[in-house]
């Protein structure tokens, strides 16, 4: 039994709790338990908050890590934003003694300290390293054959590659391997590693620009005859799901591409229903995908 401290961030608990619920259950299925980090806050978003004030961003991120460290376990996140913030904060603090002292000076006023004792992992690493593709494959009891999945990694998981160390940021494989382990087919599409448009505060400030990113990706996914998007980041997830509604409103173009967090796809392969996976709370219904699956089961 492996245990991790789960850092939730904002979008997962406050917008897509289905990801939180399904990931917890599915990890449990594979003997991985999550413990809560009580009192954590916004990570805060790496591209947005650090753009406003690096010191504040770093101090809040350091507090979140410190809370995680108090559990005595390694920390996992389900959102690339959280993963990016905590990983980068940890990287900077570990590499700069003066900075660490300064930030810990601030944290001491609220009774905590960044030590750097917990590893920070993305939940996908738990699936690929702790559980392993083979075990996932073996656990699947519902065929996802015929599902053409378009994977979206998100930027802050892979890059900067020198810090994140997940191999190639141009042609990553991790998520595709997990998708294929679930029985679905990972379909290549143009500009696959392109950003969803969410990050860097652009969404708040220039929604039309953000949505234009999203729209381009969706068009490319349609061209590749993708049945769904499979992502690993809560922010990208929101962008693709809610974004489709907003795109319709602003650009008048309608997409109906279901958006799945990768654990939700694994959940389908484990025979879980769309309600318990939280899929029926999405803005874009997963129905076309589920119909295809049911049709395939005939």
């Amino acid at each position: 039994m492996k245990e991790y401290a789960s850092f939730l961030g904002c979008i997962i608990p406050n917008r897509y709790p289905g990801i939180e619920a399904s990931s917890t259950r599915i990890l449990g299925h594979f003997d991985v338990e999550l413990v809560q980090i009580n009192g954590a806050s916004c990570c805060p978003a790496p591209g947005v908050f650090s753009s406003f004030h690096l010191d504040s961003w770093l101090a809040i991120a350091a507090r979140n890590i410190a809370l995680g460290e108090m559990t005595g376990k390694d920390i996992i996140t389900m959102c690339n934003g959280c993963y990016g913030s905590l990983t980068e904060a940890s990287f900077l603090l570990k590499g700069n003694k003066e900075l660490k002292e300064k930030i810990n000076g601030i944290l001491s006023k609220v009774g905590c300290e960044f030590k750097g004792t917990s590893k920070i992992k993305h939940v996908i690493e738990v699936f690929s390293e702790d559980i392993g593709v083979k075990k996932i494959q073996e656990a699947m009891n519902t065929s996802l054959e015929g599902v053409r999945a378009c994977t979206h990694y998100g930027c802050h998981f892979l890059k900067p590659a020198e810090m994140k160390k997940h191999g190639s940021s141009e042609r990553p494989r991790l998520l595709d391997e997990i998708v294929e382990a679930s029985g679905a087919r990972s379909v290549d599409y143009k500009d696959k590693t392109m950003c969803c448009g969410f990050g860097g505060g652009v969404r708040a400030r220039n929604l039309d620009v953000t949505l234009d990113f999203t729209r381009e990706k969706l068009n490319n996914i349609i061209s590749a005859r993708g049945d769904c998007i499979v992502d690993q980041c809560a922010s990208c997830h929101l962008e693709f799901d809610r974004g489709q509604v907003e795109i319709k409103k602003i650009f008048g173009q309608e997409f109906r591409v279901p958006v799945l967090y990768f654990t939700q796809l694994i959940g389908l392969g484990l025979g879980m229903g769309q309600h318990e996976l939280g899929l029926d709370f999405h803005s874009i219904p997963a129905k076309p995908l589920l119909d295809k699956l049911n049709g395939g089961r005939r």
């Binding site: 939730l8 608990p13 406050n14 709790p17 939180e20 809560q36 980090i37 009580n38 009192g39 954590a40 806050s41 406003f52 004030h53 010191d55 504040s56 101090a59 809040i60 507090r63 601030i106 944290l107 006023k109 609220v110 009774g111 905590c112």
Partner: peptide
């Protein structure tokens, strides 16, 4: 969620940090 939403003292800690870094003024 078990975050600052559930723990008022945790929220106060976050606010305290942001006062110390001057984020509120910025």
């Amino acid at each position: 969620p078990p975050t600052t939403h559930s723990y008022p003292e945790a929220l106060r800690a976050v606010q305290e940090i942001l006062k110390l870094t001057g984020f509120d003024r910025i």
